[in-house]
């Protein structure tokens, strides 16, 4: 009888340990995923902040050069709006396009420094 009791207890303990491990595993998996997601968002947000800073700086350079383009303003606004809505992929894409367009505008400003003279009637 004693042996039966001891065997039953052992079986129950093993079962309990097994279920405990399963509970721990199922609890840890989403937590890790959540932390990874938060880290990704934080990284993306930091990347976005850096991109936006660059986009705004370049836009200001186009303003100073008197060659600002309307579409650059639109892209910067779109980037901000998307970020406010939490759509970081769209926000980053718009910021990157604003940077690219500002560089084109600055190229235009640079090349036009001398090219305009050829258009003056002689």
């Amino acid at each position: 009888m004693k042996i039966l009791w001891i065997s039953g207890l052992i079986i129950l303990s093993v079962a309990a340990c097994d279920s405990q491990e399963k509970v721990t595993e199922t609890a840890v998996e989403p937590a890790v995923a959540e932390v990874a997601a938060v880290v990704a968002v934080v990284t993306q947000t930091q990347d976005f902040a850096s991109l936006m800073q660059q986009a705004e700086d370049l836009y200001m350079q186009t303003k100073v050069a008197k060659h600002a383009w309307l579409i650059n303003l639109d892209r910067i606004k779109d980037a901000r709006l998307a970020a406010e809505k939490g759509d970081m992929d769209t926000a980053v894409a718009n910021a990157e396009e604003a940077i690219k367009l500002s560089r084109l505008a600055l190229n235009q400003a640079e090349s036009e420094k001398s090219r305009w003279q050829a258009r003056v009637p002689q």
Binding site: W116, Q117, P121
Partner: peptide, 22 residues
């Protein structure tokens, strides 16, 4: 003012004189 008139600007890359002269 003259430089502004003959300088291409904007995304469409147009100068004032492009429409009004050329």
């Amino acid at each position: 003012g003259e430089q502004f008139y003959y300088t291409r600007r904007g995304q469409l890359n147009f100068e004032c004189s492009g429409c009004h002269q050329q």
